[in-house]
Design a protein around this nucleic acid. Structure first.
Lengths: 206, 206
DNA sequence: CCTTACGCCTGACAAATGTCACGGGCGGAG
DNA sequence: CTCCGCCCGTGACATTTGTCAGGCGTAAGG
């Protein structure tokens, strides 16, 4: 007899977190042993509560779910990780898998399937939305340079080139070159468009 | 004896919807009688299932939750409406109340309070996050003209002025004037910044 | 070793953007 | 009726943005 599967839930929205706890607690073989609202609380809570599976949201304050997954693999190698996210962005899936996640589920999936996904992950299987997997393969990895990504990430705030240059400690010309390159690589028409596209692909994590 | 409170759930994320159903079904006096994933399915489903309270998300395909709330007030005047949303945007709260919603809850609130919010709304009370209410009063209504709002909304896509003018059937100069005016009113530095700010205030609904 | 890619910078150019002043038409409030 | 605000448009202007061609240094791989 294997006993119950112990779960850790990480999601910044308390209502969703609580609701997921209620949903999963309906299953006799699942027990929620910890809930956290921030990415940087995942590892400490896990060390305390020793979960078998951690369900991590990607968008969280403190530390994103992908980074938390990586940290968790180091701190508790036996703990499986199932990433549960709002946005089915190819880059998220790729990064999550590279970080050692065992499964990736978007919040669009029917509620009934979540418990099964947890069990599969606990059993050592990988769980991935096939549609999203295909899209990820098709999209390929981010074509953006680290610097380009950083510039684009900073440009999300909506500042001028001068401001970007100031916060990044770069020349204005350099910023514009990185932006131009990013615009070209993403196929965007604008800086704003490039930000939009890169974000929708999940290339702006970090 | 009043019997159980019949609920309709509307949220585009199936997992969240199902989880909320599980959470609320734990309460003996609450019953989920309908679930929909689109705004334009709210009224038809409500006509079929006759709920006492409808929990509506704001961001939904087909029709946003605020519009659905307004439609619901016409179709089923006795049905109470509790808006449950991810984003605590002042404009959302304002618009929801104007549309006749009886309560407004953000998904940050603790899960335990949701059932109580439902009961309060069902009892005829208004439920509003006090912090968000204060912020809404402080922010005031949208200073943007209908046209300015529309231009800004179209500008979210990240197109050029020529494209905006084409889709809006306006002169390029007019588009730029509206944008300039919107930038001034929002205190933004950019068109992109104006879009960001207006959206964060909840001024771009529709 | 040589090539390649990246980061950083310069300078210059065309295009897009943001601002301003102005005018006409329309509808509502005083 | 007259004012006012909004909508639509024009034209002109300064600024910002996007693009291109180059140059220099460094690190990684053939």
């Amino acid at each position: 007899m294997t006993g119950t599967i112990r779960l850790l839930l990480a999601d910044d929205q308390a209502l969703v977190r609580g609701a997921l706890a209620a949903l999963l607690s309906l299953e006799p073989d699942l027990t929620v042993v910890a809930e956290v609202s921030r990415g940087d609380e995942v590892v400490p809570a896990a060390l305390r509560s020793r979960p078998d599976v951690a369900l991590l949201d990607v968008e969280m304050p403190g530390m994103d779910g992908v980074a938390a997954a990586a940290a968790l693999r180091v701190a508790l190698p036996d703990c499986r990780v199932l990433v549960v996210t709002t946005f089915g962005r190819p880059g998220y899936l790729r990064r999550a898998m590279e970080a050692g996640a065992n499964g990736f589920v978007v919040k669009d999936t029917p509620a009934r399937q979540l418990a099964d996904a947890v069990r599969r992950v606990h059993a050592g299987l990988r769980v991935v939305d096939p549609t999203l997997a295909a899209e990820t393969l098709a999209t390929g990895p981010s074509p953006l340079t680290e610097r380009e990504t950083e510039v684009l990430r900073t440009a999300r705030g909506g500042g001028t080139v001068a401001e970007l240059a100031a916060t990044l400690h770069l020349s204005e010309g350099t910023v514009r070159n990185h932006l131009s390159s990013a615009i070209g690589k993403t196929g965007a028409r604008n800086r704003a468009d490039a930000v939009r596209l890169a974000e929708s692909h999940g290339w702006l994590l970090g």
